[in-house]
Design a protein around this nucleic acid. Structure first.
Lengths: 244, 244
DNA sequence: TCAAAAGTGTTGGTATTACACCCATGT
DNA sequence: ACATGGGTGTAATACCAACACTTTTGA
């Protein structure tokens, strides 16, 4: 066991992405032989916290090691500390033994982050070969209590996206209003009227149209918009107050 | 050092109360001699987590030991895990030594709870003799990072009270609309128009007037209201949607 | 010329704000 | 009788929900 880590405290990260089609989570594939059968499970990226790092720093380190890039809009979700949270599934316990983790109690602190297509497609983004983007509709039973953690992350995103301009962390820097609307619809699980949606956007000063349109699309090309952080800071009242 | 506890993980509890005048926090007085001077500091109630209890159970245990009653509307806030969070103030470190806490890193998980006057005044409520209710306007510098934790608890309350019927955890079972309005004003830091406030309340089915009025008040006695959990469950849509 | 998505206004209903006076009680 | 907080209505405005057709492009 690595002497640099606190053996009972870990950090797990829910990395949420939007590829203009689906909302997906970046998961780690875990292969193991158990009772002579091969299992391929998925889990959240995570690690034990080191003695000399803040828990926020652990989360940053985990993301950097996973992706090769510094990701900074990281938010803490909450801690998960049931005594038996790692012990429901015998396979999970066997896996802990296999990575030389003492079969002890681990309290985990979950973080989540939103990453945009721009980042994912950038040269620097070199995810760990075991990492997989999995659309949330296709996530099966994960290791440990990781399904629960993801659900709480998505609930939190649902709350956040209504009140704070976090959608722009998921969208590319230049986006069309339809892309934005679809994102909101996926996150909130509802549909919006196109005209009413656009009317609302038009009143938000920090979402600014730019002089650029889609090219090579087999329909009327859509205008691009971008989010202006400057304008947002200069004009925000108390909350973004987007969609009730 | 108690072998039953995880030495690096604690729980701290922010206990919020409303006495119809002020919002107060229940704090623990810590007396110590340091450099030949006597110090009386205040801190949040908290303790290390035991190996055999969930973190939620730690929080319940801390509240029970402190107050003598079972308190169950307890919500996790978040974890605080900076490496040096206990080490800013030499006096705090000295105190840790004095209670035989190894001078190690402690990650704490903060919880908060709302308690009503009814509970506080009940026979069973027998707080620890070192416990003090301190109005939030009169809280000075606390031990460790406990000011920060309280501020985050109050922010969270501010969010919650807008969307969920948590005000009724702070109010007595029977309350007047003015008492309720004052609570909202204290929490949110704003004033409301009395008539508009009451109009809004009248539309919320789960806040029901009862056939009872104040007695012995030197003014027109106010009607009492109560919160009906049944009606709330039966009529709630998605959120309480109280005051933007 | 067709398919596919972009883009655009009006109306009726609902919710929100601002505002001032009389009432019931204890002292 | 007076001080104290309780209780009530209206009008102007802002916001929200529902709804259908024309436009631009690539194939």
């Amino acid at each position: 066991m690595d002497p640099n880590v606190i053996p009972n405290v870990s950090v797990d990260c829910v990395i949420i992405g939007y590829d203009l089609q689906d909302i997906s989570i970046l998961l780690i594939e875990r292969e193991m032989i158990y009772n002579d059968r091969k299992y391929v499970d998925l889990k959240l990226p995570g690690d034990l916290v080191r003695w000399n790092e803040d828990i926020d720093s652990s989360a940053h380190r985990i993301l950097f090691d996973l992706s090769g890039v510094q990701i900074n809009n990281l938010k803490q979700l909450q801690a998960f500390g049931e005594v038996d949270r790692l012990k429901e599934e015998p396979r999970d316990m066997e896996w802990l033994r296999s990575i030389d983790h003492p079969e002890e109690r681990v309290i985990t602190i979950a973080y989540y982050t939103l990453v945009s297509l721009d980042l994912i497609h950038s040269q620097k983004f070199k995810p760990n070969p075991n990492a997989r983007w999995v659309p949330i509709s296709k996530i099966g039973k994960l290791a440990f209590d990781h399904n629960r953690i993801i659900n709480i992350a998505l609930d939190t995103l649902r709350q956040e996206i209504k009140k704070n301009p976090v959608a722009f962390d998921l969208l590319p820097r230049k986006f069309t209003l339809s892309q934005m609307q679809k994102l909101y619809e996926l996150v909130m699980g509802t549909c919006f009227d196109k005209r009413n949606f656009r009317k609302k956007i038009a009143q938000i000063p920090c979402i600014v149209p730019i002089n650029e349109k889609q090219v090579n699309v087999p329909h009327k090309p859509a205008r691009y918009y971008m989010f202006s952080h400057d304008v947002y800071e200069a004009t925000r009242k108390d909350s973004f107050d987007f969609l009730v």
